[in-house]
């Protein structure tokens, strides 16, 4: 079985002739992510779109796990899939009345979008393949895999977020944080993002709050409905 698979998809072939699980899972998740993303585009029903999107994002999380970014993967699951999509589905359901669940797009637009998207894809893929260092470098790097296998990502990320870098040079002992040579941490962006999130929460709650003023004040009603026309 393994040899035939290897002939079909050499990326799955392992040195000893068995199945390369890493390649297998990568192919699995990549295909899932891409196909489901395409399904998002093709689907007409909004809820189904959201469903496909969730699965696509989940598959991407799998890709992250494969790339050794476990924390980011878990974060992707937690926030993107768990949080963002629940929000999105909320929105879908709150606004889902029959006529609006699917709104047809003219075929002309679709064709045009396909052309433009194809061009963009071509450009991006050309760029992706243009860097020789970007393909198969794990083969040249040697010890990278062994290191990566046990390299925890949560603590270094956490430390980086509070402003201390313990990865890279520090972990390998070449430099110490006292030298001042290590790359800087992300305390400030972290704080900014946290404040940003707070502001966004408040702002979103303000924007989305129900407009009860319609009944109480005639002036406000004019502004909120007629003003937009």
């Amino acid at each position: 079985m393994s040899s035939s698979v290897a002939q079909l998809l050499p990326v799955l072939a392992a040195a000893e002739g068995g199945l390369n699980w890493h390649g297998f899972f990568f192919l699995l998740f990549a295909l899932l992510a891409c196909c489901l993303a395409v399904a998002v585009v093709l689907a007409d029903n909004v809820v189904r779109m959201a469903f496909y999107l969730v699965l696509s994002l989940g598959a991407t999380a799998g890709l992250f796990f494969l790339a050794g970014a476990e924390f980011v993967g878990a974060m992707q699951l937690m926030i993107y899939v768990g949080g963002t999509l629940v929000l999105l589905i909320f929105g879908v359901m709150l606004t889902a009345q029959e006529p609006f669940v699917s709104i047809k797009t003219p075929v002309r637009d679709k064709v045009l979008a396909g052309l433009v998207g194809g061009a963009l894809l071509a450009v991006l893929i050309q760029a992706a393949l243009s860097g020789p260092a970007w393909s198969g470098s794990a083969a040249e790097g040697g010890g990278g895999v062994a290191l990566a296998a046990g390299q925890p990502s949560a603590t270094p990320l956490g430390m980086a977020l509070v402003g201390i870098r313990v990865d890279g040079d520090v972990a390998s002992g070449e430099k110490s944080p006292e030298d001042g040579q290590v790359r800087s941490g992300y305390l400030l962006p972290f704080e900014i993002v946290s404040v940003h999130l707070l502001v966004v929460l408040v702002g979103a709650a303000y924007l989305a709050r129900s407009k009860r003023r319609k009944s109480s004040g005639g002036q406000g009603a004019d502004l909120s409905t007629g003003g937009m026309r």
């Binding site: 990326v11 390369n20 992510a33 891409c34 993303a37 998002v40 998207g117 991006l124 393949l129």
Partner: peptide
């Protein structure tokens, strides 16, 4: 398809997702 999984593979996935 013959190279081991590398950055390029991911970039292509990313490109497809982006374009989509």
């Amino acid at each position: 398809l013959s190279d081991p999984v590398g950055v390029s593979h991911y970039l292509i996935v990313g490109a497809i997702l982006f374009t989509t």
